[in-house]
Design a protein around this nucleic acid. Sequence first.
DNA 1: CTGGGGATGGGGCCC
DNA 2: AGGGCCCCATCCCCA
Length: 530
Amino acid sequence: MSPGEDGLIGIPFPEHSSELLSCLNAQRRAGLLCDLTLTSRGARYPTHRSVMAAVSLYFRKLFGAEEGEAADFGTGGGCSVCQLDCVAPDALDALLEFAYTATLTIRSSGMREVLKAAQLLGIQCVADACRDILGEREEEEEERDHAGEAERVSRRKKDRRHISKSGLPHPQSPRPHSPSPSSPPLDYRQPHAATSSSPEYDEHSPAAGQNGDQQGGSRVTGAAVNGGGMHRGLGETLSAPTPEDGLSEEEDRGEYRDGGSAAPPVPPERGGAVGGRKRKSQTPQQCPVCQKIIHGAGKLPRHMRTHTGEKPFQCSACGVRFTRNDKLKIHMRKHTGERPYPCPDCPARFLHSYDLKNHRSLHSGARPFECPLCHKAFAREDHLQRHRKGHSCLELRTRRPRRGPGPGPGEGGGSGPHRVPPSLLDPLPLAHSSAFPRSPPQANSSGPPLLFPHDPDSASIPYHALPLLTPHRLAYASHLWRGMGLPGGTTGETGGPPSPLGSPPTQARWEQAENGEEEEEEEEEEEEEE
DNA sequence: CTGGGGATGGGGCCC
DNA sequence: AGGGCCCCATCCCCA
């Protein structure tokens, strides 16, 4: 290989962008290299012109960074001061935090101020996000107001509002850098929300508490919007959403609309397979990063580690780290040789109960998961899903195995023993049917849907798609790792490329094939009659 | 492409 | 409320 000509290789450093941002944020907090000071009603925020120009259209214009103009602001060597009294200190603080962490953490009550500030400063993605949230919330509140059972919820909401209001500094009072005791949030010197508290999610540190408690005892009342918009350009590591992400986010969205109330109509469990288990009305907590409602007491710290990449539980034998203690415990079985789930029908033993369950289906020969198109039956649901994603059934499918020899003891007709999960019959999986309500992706049949509109004018992506970007596993995680003084975040998250399940061309082919089969089957029946 | 094992994240139950 | 334990759904990887 001649190194000069075609020996060019690109070595990606996925953590670079997030590390860069994190470093800039550290410099900002330390006041290092700050060449711009923003002031708002007495509060001063040292910052960097380049960062502000990168984030805000307003500053881009101001500094002439947009069209190559050399404005005074842009060329001066000293530290400039930009007075922004039209922007509330809290909102400015939140926007600065967003600029340097890609996460917007604000209180519900401050949403409008942030929206206003984002519009003023030309931070489109934040403005869009705030608009969406405000819109949703208003709808939600209307629903609640009409619902008689919502009394408790609304009371809590009032409390929240009260807390939030009392937490806001008086507009006239100078913006303190150290907030008063009654105004816990938004100390700009401290990373917000999950950023600051992420190291404390370690289960070993009981002081950690829930994320919502970290700033004053009330649960999270604001929203943390992970800013994909402006930082997406930096974040080359942004991965397309996995089907899992999409699906779960769909579920989440449903839950989110419930607003975490104590007695919402519970969305169906996954596939309804859980059956008897009822969701106990445990205090749901909202993840400040992905907005997901986490049910179950004490589960939020566990969930947060999926964002931070923190793996506090290390195997003493091989050093592998885990996010959860129970996973480590299972892992340890590999070292101890313990396989607590023996198959009663054969010598096989398993680490997990569900492995045994899967395995036993082999003995029984049960293949309860049938492809509705080619009617091939599988013992495992995920294998059926994989089968359908691979579209292989189109080539292999011939005739409906209506008589015995086929897989499974029963006939496939109608309400036979073949269980086809409703989700699999749904031609358009949720992840692709409603996750992109505004701009449906150009689903090509060979790759993930396009999440990022190429149109530069559409500076923001739909807010609903933000959680799908899984940025929390990228830039965000890096900040936290850095904050914890740990080496760079693990990149174990694979987030494999999703298959465009149910993409229109494929769906059309399926439907076509299905129609063809109906005809074929009729012919077959006629033959049988003869 | 399929079968199988293992990993991961979320929720429920219980202490 | 927090955490342990368990189960479930889903995904990844390998043969």
